[in-house]
Design a protein around this nucleic acid. Structure first.
Lengths: 256, 256
DNA sequence: CGCGTGGTTGACCGATATCAACACTTGTGG
DNA sequence: CCACAAGTGTTGATATCGGTCAACCACGCG
């Protein structure tokens, strides 16, 4: 019921939602769940994939407490996922882009543990998890790749812990930019020019910093000739130096 | 070869290592991988489980870069896992106790991404992952529970991100204590009296704080009547208040 | 046009890190 | 047995990074 609220209701969109996704035809199939599958197995996966679903900007894909039935693969657009604790503090735990999987944290308890919200108008494939489990028994390659994706998620979060626990503001932000750059590159986009899809506030929350700190970091990086920024459009001017900052092998003086 | 260095070499221990583990007889089987399996399926799991392996205090179970062949289930003792980045900064990403699984982050790349070190003399079951994958096809309940365990790990780390990104020192430490308490309770031990197996330094690193901060927090909590501490032996005197601190619904003044 | 939202910049503050001294325990070797 | 060193933990003084508060700007929208 909660999910229904988030669905656009005009005819065109409803129409799209009834389309079945096709992994074979999807530009993300080399990054997404079907990675490495033989054509015949992709067809079997296609058969169980549910409808596509559009999610408008700022609308939830799912909310904490929603029953878990599907994983979601991002077709296009961007999402953020965040935790909210008892005291109302929130922590953004990740930003997801095309080809990435949402909802794996919910498998353990059959309801979602975090909120997932679209950062822009986006589309996902619904993957009914029960059907996926059945298919695992028939397509070992699929199971193996699914385990890889879960394992990757664990590693990604361990790196986020390292960032939040050990790094200083400037290094955190450099890591963030380098990571975005690499992920766009993997999708065939420019590694040096891209739009931040999220607000300064979201970036700050994700990195354990305030919106003011992000704003100051952007100004400082700009002054240092590392990047240019126009609204949310970033151009990385010195990716090598940025990588050095991210790796911690170089630092810039606090107020230079 | 690296692993061999960590193996105690006296006869008694070598002898133990040749023993096959038995899940059916293991006191942890209700928490560990075999949770919820029928007896017949536990037997099938037993057949693939490798040797037991003892790991002495401060010795590694595996190191970053070691080839990934096995998951490990802790039989007794405690471990820590930590990430090291290019600049040599380390972040402890978790403390594992009996019944918990180690190595799931390595599935994606076939080599380990972090170091796992014993906090005290400990024993693990080796679970050859290749054999486990074969068994998944035959025992769907096992696969389902394995997915739950991976998903739990993801959720656990998301909570750690919330802690590191949003909470103040006193709340972080309260969360740490309450979490330890709950995990000992789940294993049939006292939720109010237990030994910290790790140094102040390890606690600090895990919580993104310094050793001095941990020391001061312990003194403060002691002064507030929340606990007593003798070396590493903790007694929680006011678990309810501690839980309130952990939830963020109560605070204590910085220097009261 | 005014208003709201998002972003930038400056001044100041405070929680926690850093630095330093000291206490206690453990292990080692004479 | 003691002397000594190394490791671990505690406590105090001070420094600093990033948070907080506040003013202001730019843009989009009704």
């Amino acid at each position: 019921m909660i999910q229904a609220i988030s669905l656009p209701t005009d005819d065109k969109l409803l129409n799209v939602q009834t389309l079945k996704a096709s992994c074979a035809a999807c530009s993300m199939h080399q990054l997404c769940l079907p990675m490495g599958l033989a054509d015949a197995d992709i067809d079997r996966l296609d058969k169980i994939i549910g409808r596509r679903r559009r999610v408008a900007r700022d609308e939830p894909l799912y909310r904490k407490g929603d029953p878990f039935r599907n994983l979601y693969a991002v077709r296009f657009g961007h999402f953020k996922t965040y935790q909210v604790n008892a005291a109302g503090e929130t922590q953004i735990t990740g930003f997801q882009m095309a080809g990435e999987l949402l909802g794996m944290d919910a498998i353990s308890s059959e309801c979602h543990h975090c909120d997932a919200v679209a950062l822009e108008d986006s589309e996902v494939c619904e993957i009914p998890f029960g059907n996926l489990e059945e298919l695992f028994g028939q397509v070992p390659t699929l199971l193996r790749h699914f385990h890889r994706m879960m394992s990757n998620e664990i590693t990604r979060e361990q790196n986020a812990m390292l960032l939040l626990g050990n790094m200083r503001a400037e290094q955190r932000f450099a890591v963030f930019l380098v990571n975005k750059s690499a992920r766009y590159a993997a999708r065939g986009y420019s590694p040096t020019q891209f739009a931040l899809r999220m607000s300064r506030e979201d970036i700050g929350n994700y990195l354990g910093l305030t919106i003011e700190s992000i704003s100051r970091l952007l100004s400082r990086f700009k002054k240092m000739g590392l990047l240019t920024i126009d609204k949310r459009e970033v151009t990385l001017l010195d990716p090598a130096r940025l990588k050095a900052l991210a790796a911690g092998t170089e630092q810039c003086s606090p107020m230079a």
